[in-house]
Design a protein around this nucleic acid. Structure first.
Length: 173
DNA sequence: CCATTCCTGGCGC
DNA sequence: GCGCCAGGAATGG
């Protein structure tokens, strides 16, 4: 989508996730005539998060991009882009699943990344897949399936995406 | 192909 | 400030 729509979409997502401002809430009373507690979980994004998510929303379905290309559009670093993706509260509406590593490997999804996997080599558990491993493989499967459903092609191993990454970002903020 | 190493920028603590 | 992290590039097997 175009940059302006992306900005509006992100603003709407933030607004919808915070249906009531804390100040409004604090002025209301519960059935016992006590003030309602302020919301415990509020979505708040850093300015950098907003810049990243605005670019993500510009990626067309069926396409993908890389952390590196995003970082170049933002004059930042791939690692910083990954940081924002990891905290994305709007996945997959804000399509962080369309961001893969340079070279086509998947990277991570929903905060899970393959680097979190520790191989157990003790005799009793060397065939056992750790809890973290299962969770990570599951979330990466979700990412892969989302991309496939949108039309992104994978190599025969299913581990790498095929094609040219999208790079037509317009950073307006 | 995989492992190591160093570099990176933003953020939570 | 320090240390973590959904990355990258260079290097060496």
């Amino acid at each position: 989508m175009d940059p302006q729509t992306a900005t509006q979409t992100l603003a709407a997502l933030i607004s919808n996730s915070n249906p009531q401002s804390n100040s409004t809430r604090a002025n209301q009373l519960d059935s016992a005539n006590q003030p309602l507690p302020v919301a415990t979980r509020r979505i708040s994004l850093t300015p950098f998060d907003k810049r990243v998510y605005t670019l993500l929303l510009q990626i067309p379905p069926g396409s993908f991009t890389t952390y590196s290309l995003l970082s170049k559009s933002l004059n930042s670093s791939p690692r910083a882009v990954g940081n924002s993706c990891r905290r994305n509260p709007f996945a997959p509406t804000v399509p962080c699943h369309r961001v893969v590593a340079t070279g086509g490997s998947l990277g991570g999804f929903k905060g899970e990344h393959l680097s979190k996997i520790v191989k157990k080599t003790t005799a009793s558990s060397d065939k056992e897949i750790s809890r973290t491993t299962k969770k990570t493989l599951f979330t990466l499967d979700q990412k892969r399936n989302l991309l496939k459903k949108e039309g992104v092609r994978f190599d025969p191993t299913g581990q790498k995406v095929l094609g040219t990454p999208y790079a037509g970002f317009q950073c307006t903020i």
